[in-house]
Write a protein that binds this DNA or RNA. Sequence first.
DNA 1: GTATCTGCAAATCCTTTGCAAGTCA
DNA 2: TGACTTGCAAAGGATTTGCAGATAC
Lengths: 143, 143
Amino acid sequence: MDQLDSSIADKLGQRGYRLTPQRLMVLAAIENSDDHVSAEEIYAQVVARYPYVNISTVYRTLELLKELGLVTEIDLGEGRVRYHPVDKGHHHHLVCQKCGAIIDVDESTLARLQDVLLARYNFSASLRHVAIFGTCGKCRQQQ
Amino acid sequence: MDQLDSSIADKLGQRGYRLTPQRLMVLAAIENSDDHVSAEEIYAQVVARYPYVNISTVYRTLELLKELGLVTEIDLGEGRVRYHPVDKGHHHHLVCQKCGAIIDVDESTLARLQDVLLARYNFSASLRHVAIFGTCGKCRQQQ
DNA sequence: GTATCTGCAAATCCTTTGCAAGTCA
DNA sequence: TGACTTGCAAAGGATTTGCAGATAC
């Protein structure tokens, strides 16, 4: 029930959604994570403090936050999705398919692509949180 | 048991894998499809000719072809993966999240990004078959 | 002949859903 | 109070797996 200074909680409240303890705990778990968290990881964090939550509540909260544009989803190719608060900034990831390393890439790196797609295809790409697969330098050396 | 001229079949044979009727039918289904096919669609095609195949055989064949680099997978955001033979050329897709339209994008459009990632991050991106989500021009007009 | 493949059935994994009970505003 | 939320349990859908029997080479 801490983390009442959460900016996401503020926005939820402003839009008329109830700030239940469960939701606040989910928000805290998302915002306290440096990395991107999975639903399962959020659930584990919340259960540690309040054993009666159900994972479906976590999924429902994440669904709501997605709809409201407060978190972004990313698929790093693990067979499950990870979440990240939008207000922590946009960035991308290079995922090495050999060693699993994840390299963070600045938002600007994809800015030009976004421009090209708009100019050439009149398509507004949503490149807020993208995973690009390939091989890192270290692994290429070892081949 | 047709489609013995399949280049994928050739490669499978060369590498010592058995060319079973099931595998040949799966290969034919992949190669005869203009679009990208899902496992379920491949299965449907094969069952039409040989009702005793099992979908797990389709999945196992696809797994093998992926490992050997003979097909690529693409996730167009449908909750299931689609497959495409590598030898039919590389290309990318813009997926409109409003209307579902899929716009094909030439390989060269992502070439520069590939260069940048290599130069800046020493990362060899595997951009052979990428889906980019966003909004198409038509849908943006209607907003 | 024998290692490789297949079919079958069941299991897995992540995620979603129906519903009755609980609770925030 | 009453609409919104939750917990529970069960379903959902795509994909994977164990195993015994079948088969390509």
